[in-house]
Write a protein that binds this DNA or RNA. Structure first.
Lengths: 149, 149
DNA sequence: ATTGATGAAAGTCAAAGAAAGTCAAAAACA
DNA sequence: TGTTTTTGACTTTCTTTGACTTTCATCAAT
């Protein structure tokens, strides 16, 4: 049994018992499983992607930690369907279509769409393509999964 | 829970109950929370910045103290006030502080904050600093301005 | 009334500490 | 062989600590 699988299993069980949210200290977990800390990053990067329905955020520095949340079963399926059909580049136009869908499905409000349209416009992101559309894709997925988890 | 966060919380609650003005003795506060006095300076420097709507002034010497007060942005437009004072680089942590401001001012909902926190996290943006904080600053400003226009 | 000493505040700044992140080489596996 | 996993050296971010500095008030001596 691979250590990565063991850690993945452990985290997912922990999440089951915990309403879909866990908060861990990377170094503690590494100690617990006798592996290097960056192994935890590997597990998170490969097993807890947005596309799988997980939102991750973390803080560095003293008192820092990593939090992982799972999408809520209710209402999550439409969003996850979109997230999984998004690909890893999303143009501004495409984003509009996605947001239109979510708006008419009643999942996002008009204000919420506005925030994303403003924040993830070409002007806001600033960089050139293809980088820009890649950043937008990641940002949009993260935003949506974060919202419903 | 970090001691800095505890102190921040304490001061903000105190300010709530006190009409937006508090006056503290740095050394007493440090004693009360079992930390060094300069920790108080750290909390004030990171959590009570001007751009978050606080004004700090202090007197040294015998009988000295620190006064912190909430400043209402004149003209009433809190969003524009924040956007104008944001600077052209915003860290993830700073964004949290800004969003907290907007949340407690009743300008953004919790969902709207979640969208931005997820969409503009380090993970979502992907690139390295200093570029990352610059993109986040632009994106956040654009999102907020777009929202109110 | 001026000066000077003393002590009581707060301020500054950089080092140390505490976390997480990155990246690519090495190893294991299919 | 090509992909996935493991490892570890190095980096970044944030917090805590403490030595040193500056400012102010008071009081005693001129």
């Amino acid at each position: 049994m691979k250590i990565s699988d063991v850690i993945e299993q452990f985290l997912k069980e922990m999440m089951e018992e915990n309403d879909g949210v866990i908060e861990i200290r990377r170094n503690d977990l590494a100690t617990q499983f006798h592996c290097v800390p960056s192994q935890i990053n590997y597990v998170i990067a490969t097993r807890f992607k947005n596309e799988h329905g997980y939102a991750v955020d973390s803080r560095r520095g003293g008192g820092g930690s990593v939090r992982i949340r799972r999408v809520q079963p209710s209402g999550g399926n439409i969003v996850m369907h979109l997230v999984n059909h998004m690909g890893d580049r999303v143009s501004y136009q495409e984003m509009h279509f996605f947001l239109q869908d979510l708006l008419s499905a009643g999942i996002l409000s008009e204000r919420e769409c506005k925030l994303l349209i403003g924040g993830l416009s070409d002007r806001a992101l600033g960089m050139e393509n293809p980088h820009r559309d890649a950043v937008r894709a990641r940002a949009l997925k993260n935003a949506l999964v974060h919202l419903i988890s």
